[in-house]
Design a protein around this nucleic acid. Sequence first.
DNA 1: TCCTTTGCTACGATATTCGTAGCACTGGAA
DNA 2: TTCCAGTGCTACGAATATCGTAGCAAAGGA
Lengths: 120, 120
Amino acid sequence: MKKIATTKIPSPGRKVRGSTTGRPIMAALDLLGRRWTLRILWELRGGPMVFRALQDACDGVAPSVLNTRLGELRELDLVETTDEGYALTTQGRSLGELLLPLDAWARRWAAGRARTRDPE
Amino acid sequence: MKKIATTKIPSPGRKVRGSTTGRPIMAALDLLGRRWTLRILWELRGGPMVFRALQDACDGVAPSVLNTRLGELRELDLVETTDEGYALTTQGRSLGELLLPLDAWARRWAAGRARTRDPE
DNA sequence: TCCTTTGCTACGATATTCGTAGCACTGGAA
DNA sequence: TTCCAGTGCTACGAATATCGTAGCAAAGGA
C-alpha cells in the first residue's frame, strides 16, 4: 500500500494546516492561502464558466491543479456545477464579495508604491 | 554558477505568477495566495510582534518560510520592523482591515455547513 | 464516420514548504 | 568575566505541492 500525498481540505471545525483549533477563520485562511483559490473565486465573480474557459481566465493553470481546487471548493460548498459550467454558490458569492474591495486596495497600493519607489 | 530557485516577489506593475498583465490585483492575489501570507497579516492585526512570537502565533511555521514571507511583505511595504517587532505599515493595516469581515464570513460559512452536513 | 469541444487524469519535472539543527548577537545575572 | 536565556535568522535534506504536457473518454455536430 503506497502512501500517497493527499492534501486535506480545510473544513471549518476541523484541524487544518497550521492550526489545530478548528476555528473557521483558520480553515478559511488555509483554503485561501492555496495557489489559485483566490484567483478562481475572483474569476468566477462575473458568472459561471466552463472548465476550459476558467482555465484560460486563470492564465492556463495546470488542469490538475484547477481540478483539485475546484474539487475543494465544491466540497466546501463554495462552488457548484451548473449547466452553465462552474459557478459560485450563495456562500461562494458572499466570499467573492469580500474580495471586491481588494481590487481598489491593490490600485491604491500600486499607486502608493509608484510614488515612493524608483521605477526599474 | 548554480541555478537557484528564487521566487519572485509579486510587485504590482510587474508580471507575476499566473498573470502577465501587471494588474495590481493580480500581484495581490499572487501574494496572498502564498502560504502563511494571509495568516501573518491576520496575526499582526492586533499589534507588533517579534519574530518568535509571530512564529508561535502562526502555529510554529518554519522560520525559513516565515522569514521569506516577512521579507516579501517588507519589500512590498506592507510590514516593517519597529522596536516592538514586526508591524503592519499603514498600507498593510488597510489590507488587514479588508480581512476583518472574513472572520464573520467564516463563522457563517461554518454555521451553514454544520446545518447541511452530517457531523463526522 | 469524422471532427471539435469538453472535463479531466497521468506523470515526470520543478518549485515550494517543512522540520530540525544551530549560529551569531544581545542583555542581563552571577 | 563568564554564563545563561532569548532573539533573529540561515542551512539543508525531506516531504509536498504545483507545473507542463500529453492524452483519453464522452458528447455533440456536420
